[in-house]
Design a protein around this nucleic acid. Structure first.
Length: 350
DNA sequence: AAGGCGGGGTC
DNA sequence: GACCCAGCCTT
């Protein structure tokens, strides 16, 4: 695989986490890049390292501030797990970042891939980091028909990558494989004509690139109907922290009623009475927004926002909701659905 | 082994 | 629309 390494050294992107061997920084970069493109994660990495430059600063972080830093990046359990893992390092590893694959995998949120990436890049250990790029590259080079998303398939690819890894420069090898997948061996239109290993690529030789990687089945999406009630009382509004085992865990949003079917305008207004702490009077003004469509991997959220101003609030009964100033909304981590709504329909203060 | 968990880019 | 991204955790 010498051609691959040479290609990598000539063509690799200049990325901030490639200027360090600091295991903490490599770890942060790897977690940010889980199921996330470099272009999307880069800015998050920079502000994350600036705010939390080392594991001890992260270990003493506040969860709400951490979630706010992670806002918009998705897969929010990663942020929670980072905090848990940082505290593990401080408490179980005496503040010193673990240096073996086995110990790295003890950290919350660190699986086979991330452990191998940190071990190889920071500690020069011969651990093969097998991610989506590597599945694609290897399945094409060797024309492997085994599905990559089964236990058996994953084992096979892990074994193959382990056999191929350059034991002298494992970190460079791992990154070269991934960089090849990210820059040339693309999912849709791979750039085989300039690929450094095209002469060794079985699927290129047989014109069967498009068949790889083989995957079986895809989950289908479910529809959910969200009705948010956005209260605008003078300078204040009301938000709730999402605490159930569901999407957007630990993020904030507006008081919510969820239905399995679409509601009529009349039903949306009628549902207001489910909030016992909210009393509409003759002075109350109500407006229903257009539908917001928010697509996630496995579900589609169809949301409307009901703007309510001039209502009375029974604060003794409003124990599940948090009253905040509208100007403080930015301090709370919220899903993109909510920030998109607020960009389009800002809350007015007076 | 299967399902849950985001948001955005690309074709 | 469908697919995919430097995956991991829970059940």
């Amino acid at each position: 695989m010498l051609q691959l390494i040479e290609w990598y050294n000539r063509n690799k992107r200049k990325l901030p986490w490639r200027n360090t061997n600091d295991a903490y920084k490599i770890w942060i970069s790897e977690v940010i890049l889980q199921q996330t493109r470099v272009a999307q994660g880069l800015a998050y990495y920079l502000k994350f390292i600036e705010r939390f430059p080392d594991v001890s600063s992260l270990a003493s972080a506040n969860i709400d501030e951490l979630m706010r830093l992670w806002q918009g990046l998705g897969y929010y359990s990663r942020a929670k797990n980072l905090l848990t893992a940082a505290r593990q390092v401080v408490e179980q590893f005496d503040g010193k970042f673990p240096e073996t694959v086995m110990d790295l995998k003890k950290l919350k949120g660190v699986g086979d891939y991330t452990a191998a990436a940190v071990a190889s890049i920071s500690f020069n250990l011969p651990a093969a980091a097998v991610d989506g790029n590597v599945y694609r590259v290897l399945s094409r080079i060797y024309a492997i028909d085994e599905p990559v998303n089964t236990t058996k398939g994953k084992q096979m690819f892990q074994q193959l990558a382990t056999k191929l890894i350059d034991k002298k420069n494992p970190g460079t090898f791992n990154q070269a494989m991934m960089e090849l997948g990210a820059l040339l061996c693309l999912p849709k239109k791979p750039l085989c004509h300039i690929c450094p290993v095209n002469e060794k690529c079985l699927s290129f030789a047989s014109g069967s690139i498009a068949r790889y990687p083989v995957k079986n089945k895809k989950p289908k999406q479910k529809k959910r109907y969200f009705y948010y009630y956005v209260i605008n009382n003078k300078n204040n509004t009301f938000i709730c922290k999402r605490i159930s085992r569901d999407i957007w865990h630990n993020l904030y949003n507006f008081p919510l009623i969820e239905e399995s079917r679409m509601l009529t305008g009349e039903q949306i207004l009628s549902a207001i009475k489910k909030f016992s702490w909210l009393k509409c009077t003759e002075k109350t003004a109500i407006g229903i927004s257009e539908e917001f469509r928010h697509v996630l991997t496995h579900q589609v959220i169809l949301a409307r926002f009901v703007r309510i101003s001039g209502a009375d609030i029974d604060k003794t009964a409003a124990d599940k909701v948090l009253e905040i100033e509208i100007s403080a909304l930015d301090n709370y981590a919220m899903p993109r659905l909510i920030t998109r709504y607020l960009e389009k329909h800002p809350l007015a203060t007076r």
